[in-house]
Amino acid sequence: MSCPDAIGAEDRATAGTVSTRVDVAIRGVRLAAPVRRTGGAGPSDDGHVVLGGLATALPLRSDSPYLVREGRLVREDPLGALLEVTDLGIEVEPVQRPRFYDLATTDGIPYEKIAKLHGRDVLATTVVQTCSRYAPEDRCRFCAIESSLESGSTIAVKTPAMLAEVAEAAVRLDGVKHVVMTTGTSTAPDRGARHLARCVRAVTEAVPGLPVQVQCEPPGDLATLTELKDAGASSIGIHVESLDEAVRRRWMPGKSTVPMAEYRAAWTEAVRVFGRNQVSTYLLVGLGEDPDELVAGAEDLVELGVYPFVVPFRPLAGTLAVDVDGAGAPGAAVLEDVSRRVAKALRAGGMRGADQMAGCAACGACSVLQNLNG
């Protein structure tokens, strides 16, 4: 059931604006976006804009009723042979192509193939663009991490030196404020975390004080979390995507072999190392998990000190989502209800994405939670 007092607690958006933000997150927008993300590890495949003052990632869809006209979000609905056009009162500004995209390393690798601009001020990179769980029988059904490698839009392995060079330019030329580093899962016991640590150390030495979030599966040895922190990481995402075992087996056949007890141990240790609200995990709405159970799990994560980054699932090109029965974006009512309740739990727990030092929750662009002050 939804919480009727949640609306009264909002202080950053009206109820109507939140409902519009939810709907456009699912139905997308007609817009030419200079900065966009396609393919990759998911779960989003979007254009980046500033919507109502907040960095926002929106699906770019030619069949959306929403479009941007003269810097405003409008909606067109059929009205007989005509269109009824409604100005929704929300300003929209596309994020402009960053200047660091025009540069290349001395051996000719474009910076854009090493790291991307996300939101309006986040540098994001997948340090290893392959995954040991990418065989069809093991692959996460929402993930296309190797598709961008196959298309030639990135390179397989980003070295610490490369990332340091790009980060320095992105900060200097485009005002990047924090970095997200994720990785495909390796077969090593640390599942790729130690390469992340080497990359973080290089970036923070090149740009002292630049906050960096790392994202990885629970490393086999929890002491690796301290290595990541000592290397200079400010926060960490240990992403489970769903807390429901049946959903995990159906959507993440390889990743679901990592027991939930191992995730919980990693989250607990990460909170000890990085601090409360500097640890996060994705929860995807629309994979088939019961909404009440999803919210209850999110509330438990908040109690643990972990930020549940609630994001709508949308099937991406190049993924195996079509092989999952009932795959599709969640209904707007479900996404709004879940987001409101999770935002309420976050506020009660004194946790806001904006208070994270770096990473997806700090950016907030892929979620509705920032619109609810969560």
Rank of each mutant, 00 (worst) to 15 (best):
T183R: 09
V214P: 05
G232Y: 05
E165T: 11
H239L: 06
C199V: 14
S186L: 14
G175T: 02
V207R: 12
L173M: 06
E227T: 13
G184V: 08
D230Q: 15
S186T: 15
V212W: 05
G232M: 08
A164Y: 07
V180T: 12
S234N: 09
C199E: 10
T224Q: 07
A197S: 13
T224W: 03
E205N: 05
A169L: 02
S242W: 03
D190H: 12
A231Q: 06
P208F: 03
T183D: 10
I238G: 12
A164V: 06
V214C: 14
H195Y: 13
G192K: 10
E217Q: 13
L228C: 06
E168F: 03
A167H: 01
M162N: 03
E217P: 02
G220A: 10
E227C: 06
D174H: 03
H178V: 01
E227S: 10
S235N: 08
V240I: 15
G175N: 02
I238R: 12
M181F: 14
V171W: 01
A169W: 01
D190C: 03
V212Q: 07
R191Q: 11
R198Q: 13
D230H: 07
V203F: 09
V212I: 15
H195F: 09
P160H: 04
V203S: 10
G184C: 09
A223F: 01
Q215K: 12
H195C: 11
R198E: 15
A202G: 03
Q215M: 14
G232P: 09
A202C: 06
I238W: 12
C216K: 01
V179Y: 04
P218I: 08
L225S: 07
V214K: 10
A223D: 14
A161P: 00
G237H: 04
A246F: 04
A164F: 05
M181A: 13
M181K: 08
A202S: 13
G220V: 10
L173P: 00
